[in-house]
Design a protein around this nucleic acid. Structure first.
Length: 304
DNA sequence: GCGTCCAGGTCTACC
DNA sequence: GGTAGACCTGGACGC
């Protein structure tokens, strides 16, 4: 396949920390995201509106990201704008964290957050992809999540080059049988949940993309997210963080253990106790919580 | 190599 | 509203 190359520059907002955003949570290790540790780049295979694929390798530059594009076709001006938009969504360039940073500066133990520019959580170009990935993190090891997502991109997504496929859209997953998802994606009992979610989105019965701009109160939005089968308290709480709502903690076994270690000398406490601990941080509590639990990830530059 | 046990969230049925 | 059991997989472990 002949590939065309081009380059764009993506302006970044004040206090933007590229690698902090990349390593903000596990998404960077799930295809079609990829970290190239040797070349210090982070890449993403994007599917554009016309169905063509664009592989974007991002590297940090002063007040900007440099994006090297490889594509199956010549990249037009409109394509470049679409690539900018999709990558801006992933890095949440439009999200205003100034209120969060003002709050963080009030607490000595959280002043490191604005100082390093942490707080921007990486997300997929679409809510649908984030939701599918979140379901695939439930009730299993991280290695199994990696298997499921890799299988989705390679077996259902569009092939770009060997071992690199795009993330399948709702139509593609809606067209799969439950048995295929069980057998080949290895999603187990999550399979009917994934197919049902894709069918609802593909049929226009669920407008998940509108969640990012929803004006609903967070508790109402939480209920909508929870209405998706397979998305429970943990998955909904974490999906809301990717929608810019940080009112829920999204507890799972790993963060509970981390909280016990950091605050209770390893002693188990109830979820209510954890929630009470972060309640004073109001609408930012989920973000304070997550950043505190993962603070040490960045001390090893490549945690995944 | 095989069998058993366990961890990991969510759903459903039941109280 | 709270709880028990089922769901499925990979990994650890013992044989």
């Amino acid at each position: 396949m002949r590939l065309f190359t081009s380059r764009i520059v993506l302006k970044t907002p004040p206090h933007f920390n590229f690698w902090r955003a990349v390593y903000s949570h596990g998404w960077c290790a799930l295809p079609p995201f990829r970290v190239d540790k040797e070349n210090d780049t982070f890449s993403r295979l994007l599917e554009l509106k016309d169905g063509s694929l664009a592989h974007c390798a991002l590297s940090d530059a002063a007040d900007a990201l440099s994006v090297s594009i490889q594509s199956e076709k010549r990249v037009s001006h409109a394509d470049k704008e679409e690539i900018r938009t999709q990558l801006s969504e992933c890095f949440r360039m439009e999200e205003d964290l100034s209120g969060f940073y003002r709050e963080a500066k009030l607490y000595p133990r959280y002043r490191w957050i604005p100082a390093v520019g942490a707080g921007r959580l990486l997300r997929a170009p679409t809510v649908f992809e984030d939701a599918v990935k979140m379901i695939c993190t439930t009730n299993c090891s991280w290695s199994l999540t990696e298997v499921m997502i890799k299988n989705l991109t390679l077996l259902v997504g569009k092939k770009f080059v060997d071992e690199v496929g795009s993330f399948p859209n709702a139509n593609a997953i809606a067209g799969l049988s439950e048995s295929f998802v069980r057998k080949h994606i290895r999603a187990g009992y999550r399979s009917p949940y994934l197919v049902e979610l894709a069918e609802r989105v593909a049929a226009g019965k669920l407008d998940a993309e509108s969640w990012r701009t929803s004006e609903l109160p967070t508790n109402e939005l939480f209920k909508q997210v929870r209405s998706v089968k397979g998305i429970g308290e943990y998955a909904a709480g974490n999906l809301l963080k990717l929608l810019g709502r940080y009112d829920y903690l999204g507890l799972d076994s790993w963060v509970r253990a981390k909280f016990y270690e950091l605050h209770k000398n390893g002693r188990r406490v109830s979820d209510k106790t954890i929630e009470k601990h972060y309640a004073p941080f109001g609408k930012w509590r989920g973000l304070f919580f997550w950043l505190e639990m993962t603070r040490d990830w960045y001390s090893h530059k490549f945690p995944f």
